[in-house]
C-alpha cells in the first residue's frame, strides 16, 4: 500500500515544522502553553482558551481507529489508486485526525484497531503521516473489488 498516492500538502508558515518533522519520521502536535490542551489541526492559536502561546510537542505516534471507510474510487490524485482506506485515527494524546490506514488489506481495518504512524515522503521535503495496524490488530487479507461500473458519483452534501 505504500504505492498509494502521496500528494504534497500546501505548507503554510505556521505548519512548516509539522511537515518537515514528518519527513524525518516524527509526528508533531501543537500544545497550548497556558491550558495544556493538545490542539488539532495544528495552529498557533488555542481554540480551547484563546491563548496565542503554543508550542510543538512530539506525539508518541500511536492511536486507534475512530472510524474508517474503504473509498472504492478516489478523485484527483487518488483517481487511479484503487480502493484505499480513509480514516479518523484517535491519537493517544486525544485528537482525532483524518488520515489513511495502510500496509494492510483494505478490508482489514476495524473501529478500535490499534495503529502506529508511518510517514510517506511526498518528494518535496514533506511527508504525510499515515497509520498501520500494530500487533494482534493486524488482520489477514481477503480480496476486495473496486467499483466495476462507472458510478453516478454522488453529489456533495454541502
Amino acid at each position: 500500500m505504500t504505492s498509494m498516492p502521496t500528494p504534497a500538502p500546501y505548507v503554510t508558515p505556521d505548519a512548516a515544522a509539522y511537515w518537515h518533522a514528518a519527513a524525518e519520521g516524527r509526528l508533531l502536535l501543537r500544545r497550548c502553553d497556558e491550558c495544556a490542551t493538545v490542539i488539532w489541526y495544528p495552529r498557533p492559536f488555542c481554540p480551547s482558551c484563546a491563548g496565542s502561546s503554543t508550542s510543538w510537542v512530539e506525539a508518541v505516534g500511536t492511536g486507534s481507529v475512530y472510524s474508517f471507510t474503504i473509498t472504492r474510487k478516489g478523485q484527483g490524485a487518488y483517481r487511479e489508486a484503487g480502493p484505499y482506506v480513509l480514516a479518523y485515527v484517535e491519537l493517544d494524546e486525544g485528537p482525532r485526525m483524518l488520515t489513511n490506514v495502510v500496509d494492510c488489506p483494505v478490508d482489514g481495518v476495524r473501529v478500535g484497531q490499534r495503529v502506529t504512524a508511518v510517514f510517506h515522503d511526498t518528494g518535496q521535503g514533506t511527508a504525510l503521516p499515515r497509520f498501520r495496524p500494530i500487533g494482534a490488530d493486524e488482520i489477514p487479507a481477503v480480496e476486495i473489488a473496486a467499483v466495476e461500473t462507472a458510478v453516478d458519483e454522488p453529489a456533495v452534501g454541502g
Binding site: 500538502p9 505548519a15 489541526y41 478523485q75 487518488y78 489513511n100 499515515r130 452534501g157
Partner: peptide, 16 residues
C-alpha cells in the same frame, strides 16, 4: 492541508 492530501471524497466523509 491536514485533510485534502488523504484522498477525501464526498461520499467518503459521510461513510465515516
Amino acid at each position: 492541508p491536514f485533510e485534502n492530501p488523504y484522498g477525501l471524497s464526498v461520499p467518503g466523509m459521510y461513510a465515516l
